[in-house]
Nucleic acid binder design. Structure first.
Lengths: 139, 139
DNA sequence: AGAAATTTGTCCGTATGTATC
DNA sequence: AGATACATACGGACAAATTTC
């Protein structure tokens, strides 16, 4: 599969999923992500594609990689505590006025919205909406 | 040649040489760098290695790449040297429909919105909006 | 302490998709 | 329409650092 052909590039899709795990705390800060080999199996992707995805998270400061050890989830401010549940979802939506202005894209252009809903004992305590461009033109 | 074996990785060496050409003006601002294919021949490196080098210059804001056209020496710019700037702001706003529904507060009730705007080289790459109730001793 | 296994880093070659000229 | 150029993705190989036994 040389190129997506439909949908977004695989390394972006993989990056989104891994990002969600880290941001949500599903992968605890300081703990190791699955090895590149394990991710290759899980996502059925080549190592290059996996590394491409990880490079994005690295650039975002979300993870840090150590040769011989693995990739570590960066210390994260928010995250867990006891009895905290997290729902996350990701959609592709048209940019709102505010988002388009800040991201510098035309209004209505498709962007990725990732939403994290944090609950404590069933009660929503925090909502986090993040927006990113789709294209990202490499890196 | 699987690995440098001596000295620095080839993609770093290549990046340095290209960087020098751009900074020195040898490659005029706005003009095209040699194509990836040409660079492969010149540096006797694989395309992946060439692209790795170009990605570095791109991150530094020194060049910009356009699919189908080529890689262009940046006009000028260079706002700062580094990677990522973050703007943090916090406001008290009335809850939108969505926020009120999720947080379980009456629509219009005041909530705290914290906004994080992430920029790289002056360009906004991500917006994060988080919403919390005001009167919660729970963080 | 030393050897083996694991894991990331670098590099190559190839193939195909997609945008631009 | 054809050629050129960048983007994505695969596969293999070896090097270097760390962990494990």
């Amino acid at each position: 599969m040389p190129t997506p052909q439909y949908g977004r590039p695989r390394y972006l899709v993989i990056a989104s999923k891994l990002r969600a795990r880290v941001i949500s705390g599903l992968i605890a800060p300081g703990s190791l992500l699955p090895s590149e080999g394990a991710l290759m199996v899980e996502f059925k992707a080549s190592r290059g594609t996996i590394r491409h995805a990880l490079a994005l998270l690295r650039d975002e400061g979300l993870v840090r990689t150590e040769r011989g050890r693995g990739t570590v989830a960066a210390a994260q401010a928010r995250t867990d505590g006891a009895g905290q549940e997290v729902d996350l979802s990701s959609h592709i939506i048209p940019a709102s006025t505010e988002v388009s202005r800040l991201l510098g894209v035309p209004r209505g252009e498709l962007v990725e919205e990732e939403q994290i809903v944090v609950r404590r004992s069933g009660k929503v305590t925090e909502i986090i909406n993040s927006y990113r461009r789709l294209n990202t033109n490499l890196k």
